[in-house]
Amino acid sequence: MSSTTARQRLSRLDVRLSPYLYISPFFILFAVVGLYPLLYTAFVSVHDWHLIGGQGDFVGLKNYVDVLGQQRFGRALGNTFSIFLLSSVPQVIAAIAIAALLDANLRAKTFWRMGVLLPYVVAPVAVSLIFSKLFADQSGLVNTLLATIGIDPIGFHSDRLASHLAIATMVNFRWTGYNTLIFLAAMQAVPRDLYEAAIVDGASRWRQFWSVTVPMLRATIIFVVITSTIGGLQIFDEPRMYDTLGLGGSDRQWMTMTMYLYELGWGAQKSFGRAAAVAWILFGIIIVIGMVNFLLTQRIASGDAPRRVRKGARA
């Protein structure tokens, strides 16, 4: 009897602890490679920490004040948001459109689906080098094509907005296919009965897309927007390799926040304290934008629930 009781207790303990043991590797890994570096960066940001000299005196928020007072910080922040907006908005729209085409009855579906993902697996450095040549100010292919239709060459490396458009094109080239497959998976999960009912009601393909597909993709769209926001605010590879110097242009026309962070820590200043302060400021910006997206998601979800309930009650 005592043996059976002990076995039952062990079984109950196993049922209670097993879920926590299964998910514990994630939290352990996150604590080692995520939480600890985050907290250590906060510790560095409040010290006068030099790349060569190491840890110095405690300075409190001085590094934050110094960074916020620098002109390059404002320029880097503006460049980051500009490139982010020029890349994320067209990227989401194009991904939805391409996913809708791939969801149709196309021949060789696997070929086209693998084709849209191919740019994502190409190394960012290779993409940046290729596009930097395509958008060269004098001998680039883009300006050569523009010259054939009578348009003067555009300074894709000298003009601020033009450089942002070129870098945004790189980002869209790499990430549109990845987001397309996410939208495609969500589209294939939409019940086909809804489309059949729309066809019976006489809805065209365009009306089916706007009245059935897009509303059912709402959660996926929000997810892609959030991930694109986080990735867009941390962009580094594309602007870093856009020219041979990797400084963000002669006047820092396309220097982003992460490039500014790199310049503070490993450039002329070699101040890890200020670089860590920039990292935490960027982290705070991402948290704020993420919270806004989260609240927006909650509002949309709570606004849809009563309508679903009412529809169910009528049925």
Rank of each mutant, 00 (worst) to 15 (best):
V121H: 02
W112E: 10
A126M: 09
V127H: 01
S139L: 15
W175A: 11
N172F: 04
L117Y: 06
S163Y: 02
V122G: 15
A168Y: 00
A126Q: 10
M170V: 01
G140Y: 00
Y120E: 03
F131K: 08
S132L: 04
H164T: 04
A162E: 07
N143R: 00
T169S: 15
D152L: 08
G140R: 03
P119L: 03
S132N: 10
P153G: 08
F156T: 03
I167K: 12
Y178F: 06
V171K: 01
R160K: 11
T148N: 08
H157W: 00
S139R: 09
L146M: 07
R113H: 06
A136M: 04
I130P: 12
A166L: 06
F131M: 12
Q138C: 04
Y120H: 11
I149H: 02
L141E: 12
F111N: 05
I167T: 13
V116H: 02
G177V: 04
T144E: 13
T169V: 13
D137Q: 03
S128Y: 02
W175M: 09
W175F: 12
L117S: 09
Q138P: 07
F131Y: 11
A123Q: 08
L145M: 12
V122Y: 12
A123G: 15
A166Q: 04
A123H: 06
W112R: 02
A168R: 01
V116E: 10
T144C: 07
R160S: 15
G115Y: 01
I130D: 10
L145D: 08
V116I: 05
T148R: 11
S139C: 14
I130S: 13
V171P: 06
H157M: 02
I154C: 03
G155C: 07
V116Q: 09
L129F: 11
V142P: 06
A166H: 01
L165C: 09
H157K: 03
H164K: 04
Q138E: 15
Y120M: 09
Y178T: 13
S139E: 14
L146T: 07
I154Y: 00
L141A: 15
V125R: 01
I167D: 10
L161T: 15
L129T: 14
F111G: 10
F111W: 06
P119M: 01
L134S: 14
M170E: 12
V127W: 00
N172I: 15
Y178N: 12
M170N: 08
K133M: 15
S132I: 13
F156V: 03
F135V: 08
D137I: 05
G150A: 10
R113W: 03
S163A: 14
H164Y: 00
V127R: 02
V171W: 01
Y120Q: 09
A147G: 14
R113Y: 06
